[in-house]
């Protein structure tokens, strides 16, 4: 499991954004992504978690033309450009939905709940929506 570098003086706090909701049915996923993109401009230690139905946000091949909503799954690809590199997906959530890392739009770190739990416990701020 990844260890955090605590030496950088610019690292003030560890922020974790937790996504547990599917896209489109409600606006939470989209607006949470908007927070993450803004948060990336601050010199903080950011991680983004997808678990429970939140893993559906990252599903490949989303086509929203028939529902008239913006397909924001394409934006996840920009996270890396924004410097957001700690993207965690809970393995148990993927397994329960018959998904694997290959079904997702971006490369992520798939973690077992017990390992994700350790990272969660080290945060300073946890934001969920």
């Amino acid at each position: 499991m990844e260890e955090y570098d605590e030496s950088g003086p610019e690292v003030v706090k560890r922020f974790m954004y937790v996504n547990r909701r599917a896209p489109y049915g409600t606006i939470y996923a989209l607006e949470c992504l908007e927070v993450v993109l803004v948060a990336a401009a601050f010199d903080q230690d950011i991680s983004v978690v997808f678990m429970d139905d939140g893993v559906y946000q990252l599903k490949k091949n989303q086509d929203t033309t028939g529902i008239g909503m913006k397909n924001f799954s394409k934006t996840f690809g920009a996270l890396e450009d924004y410097g957001v590199e700690k993207i965690y997906v809970e393995k148990e959530s993927l397994d329960a939905r018959g998904l694997s890392a290959g079904d997702l739009v971006i490369p992520v770190e798939v973690l077992a709940a017990v390992d994700l739990s350790e990272i969660m416990a080290r945060q300073d701020v946890v934001i969920s929506s």
Binding site: R20, M51, D52, L116, S117, E118, A121
Partner: peptide, 15 residues
């Protein structure tokens, strides 16, 4: 909701 289940799965003992 699954909130309680997920919390019990992810929360570290001692929480």
């Amino acid at each position: 909701r699954t909130a309680l289940d997920s919390c019990l799965r992810l929360a570290k003992p001692g929480s």
